[in-house]
Computed example of a mutant assay.
Amino acid sequence: MKQLLRKPLLLLSFLFLGGTLAASFIHSVFFDSHIPRTPFVTDDTGTLQGPPFAPFDHSILGTDSSGNHLLFYMLQGAKYTMLGTLAITIVCMIIAFGLGAWMGQLKRYRRVHKAIEQILMIFYFVPAALIIYQALFPLLWESPDGFATSLLYRLIVESIFISLVLVPAPAILIANEASVINQREFAVAARLMGASSWQVFWKHIFPSLRVSLFTLGFATAIQVILIMTHLGIFNLFYGGTEVKYGMGGGPPTPVVYDWGSLVGMYQYTLQLNSAYWLVLVPLIGMSLFVLALSCMIKETKKIM
């Protein structure tokens, strides 16, 4: 706790993440994720005005063309954006660490290591969002009969699949760094004294990798946010896309309104050059989230 108080950036980051998540869960539990609407208002001259309303006109963050308050969409989606990003990042890094550690031990078998590395390198040249879109479209796009699976199932499957797609890059970097450390004098001396390869890894290599793991984790979290935003622009939203079939059904909408999905849902405002805040506010929210993660990792590395 004393370390936390001495690091104001770390404290502010925790307060931002904790406060935003708390507000999101309060909105969900106590207010049933209700989204207020302001369809029409009358100004001082008695003129009837309709949405969208700019920020601070009739809502703190403004409204969309239907009068829905953006602030409450942001609250509703905060928990899915933050917890989803962190969960995907953690799963990805656990798998990447295990695969990278194993590949690092295979460095002595150059042909095997090179073959595995070349297979993983394929994912460098294929956009991750395209792979995920093609693979998960049948699961996430609502059919005329509705979703065949539950929201929890879709969130879990999508999160795991995104984690697996993002594994190759950090796994290769971990393997290469582990191999370099494995050739240093203290690691060679430990093996000469009778230590096994895994003893050398856990007692000598892993402590040297910890700082790099934080850096790779942060880079992976940014990738997750970008992928969720890219999928949102393609109208394949996190947790599923609700599709209104029939005449006058309207455009596709998210199920959980994470911030990346909000950018995709309101991207039309950029083409119409109107209600720019509907895209700008979620982008600012994601930027603050990334900044908070960056500060937390930076200050934690100093403590380590």
Results as ranks from 00 to 15, higher is better:
189 A>C: 10
238 Y>R: 07
106 L>H: 03
77 G>D: 05
228 M>R: 12
257 Y>T: 01
92 C>E: 05
14 F>Q: 09
34 H>C: 08
210 R>E: 00
113 H>F: 11
196 S>E: 05
38 T>A: 11
111 R>T: 12
204 H>F: 02
277 W>V: 03
260 G>I: 04
173 L>D: 05
162 I>N: 01
56 F>T: 14
189 A>T: 10
9 L>Y: 14
8 P>N: 02
214 F>V: 13
291 L>M: 12
82 M>Q: 09
213 L>S: 04
7 K>A: 14
67 G>C: 01
101 A>C: 06
222 I>S: 10
10 L>M: 13
287 S>F: 11
42 T>Y: 13
266 Y>E: 00
108 R>F: 07
246 G>N: 03
221 A>P: 05
200 V>R: 07
248 G>F: 08
62 G>S: 09
156 I>M: 09
268 Y>C: 05
178 A>P: 05
7 K>H: 14
78 A>C: 03
171 A>M: 06
111 R>I: 10
243 V>D: 02
146 G>S: 07
206 F>C: 08
265 M>T: 13
164 L>T: 03
53 F>Y: 11
17 L>S: 08
192 L>I: 11
113 H>A: 13
97 F>H: 03
44 D>N: 15
209 L>H: 00
146 G>L: 06
58 H>T: 14
13 S>C: 06
284 I>R: 00
177 E>Q: 13
122 I>M: 09
40 F>M: 15
86 L>H: 05
189 A>K: 10
135 A>R: 08
144 P>I: 02
120 L>Y: 08
221 A>S: 11
172 I>E: 02
194 G>Y: 04
221 A>M: 04
168 P>V: 05
209 L>Y: 04
83 L>W: 04
36 P>G: 09
204 H>V: 02
74 M>C: 06
23 A>P: 02
197 S>L: 12
111 R>V: 10
272 L>I: 14
248 G>Q: 01
5 L>R: 14
93 M>H: 08
81 T>Q: 00
138 P>W: 08
147 F>T: 05
59 S>D: 10
177 E>D: 10
149 T>Y: 13
9 L>C: 11
289 F>V: 01
155 L>G: 02
170 P>D: 07
151 L>W: 07
119 I>S: 07
233 I>M: 11
97 F>R: 04
248 G>E: 08
169 A>I: 13
123 F>T: 12
175 A>F: 03
247 M>G: 13
